[in-house]
């Protein structure tokens, strides 16, 4: 049994591009899922009853489904239901965004709820409206509490982008496994794939630790 590790170097261009796609997916998903998560959290807390229930149902549904199922569902069912054909990349992005928005909504909701009632009362005693109290007093404080959890969600998302490989999105997992299939260099490519994820993910995990230490809430 001989191992030819040069196959990794030979395909470095493809792997680099694929890594770029992985990073792009992560960034784009968060760019959508953070604002959407805030909106859904606000709807869950402050909107009128039917909207509140719908928002809660959405969050509970997507928090209780495997992401890989959502990816398949988006790929096969979305085009049929919406009549719009999306590229695998866009479909993968949609599935990831739907999923992460739900988690973020829960994070933001918990963050908003964790601010003491007295803070809102003090703001209102000054004559602020509910919206002003939210904007000037509650949200700035909630953001601090929410940041460590968002960082953790980010790293999970980074790993979860590997799941859109099942619908042939040309991110790292898919491309690595394609090269494996073409070159028959199974051990080399799979190890290289793991190594690249590790190289990118390890520093992110350490960064999350630092953020959690720095923003630990002391009451």
């Amino acid at each position: 049994m001989t191992f030819d590790w040069s196959v990794v170097w030979q395909h470095r261009g493809e792997l680099l591009a694929a890594t770029g796609t992985t990073i792009l997916l992560t960034v784009a998903t968060m760019a959508i899922a953070v604002p959407c998560g805030i909106v859904v959290a606000a709807l869950r807390l402050y909107a009128w009853a039917p909207v509140r229930v719908t928002a809660t149902a959405y969050v509970e549904l997507f928090r209780n489904l495997p992401l890989i199922l959502v990816v398949f569902w988006a790929f096969y069912v979305l085009p049929i239901l919406s009549g719009v054909g999306l590229s695998p990349l866009a479909t993968g992005l949609a599935a990831l965004a739907l999923n992460v928005t739900a988690y973020n909504a829960e994070t933001f909701r918990a963050g908003l709820n964790s601010i003491r009632r007295g803070q809102v009362e003090a703001a209102m005693a000054l004559g602020m409206s509910r919206t002003q109290a939210l904007r000037r007093v509650v949200v700035p404080q909630a953001l601090r509490r929410v940041l460590p959890v968002l960082a953790s969600t980010w790293v999970s998302l980074f790993k979860d982008t590997s799941l859109v490989s099942v619908i042939a999105v040309t991110e790292l997992a898919y491309v690595a496994m394609q090269i494996r299939a073409q070159s028959f260099r199974v051990l080399e490519m799979l190890t290289a794939m793991a190594a690249i994820y590790w190289l990118l993910g390890y520093p992110q995990a350490k960064l999350v630790d630092w953020i959690q230490r720095r923003y630990a809430v002391t009451e």
Binding site: L163, R180, V186, L190, M193, W198, L200
Partner: peptide, 21 residues
């Protein structure tokens, strides 16, 4: 920390295809 960095998919695929080798 490595398990926090590497996706489950990658671990499963490596265990099934690479480990036997």
């Amino acid at each position: 920390d490595s398990m926090r960095a590497i996706p489950v998919l990658v671990v499963l695929v490596w265990a099934f295809f690479a480990l036997p080798i």
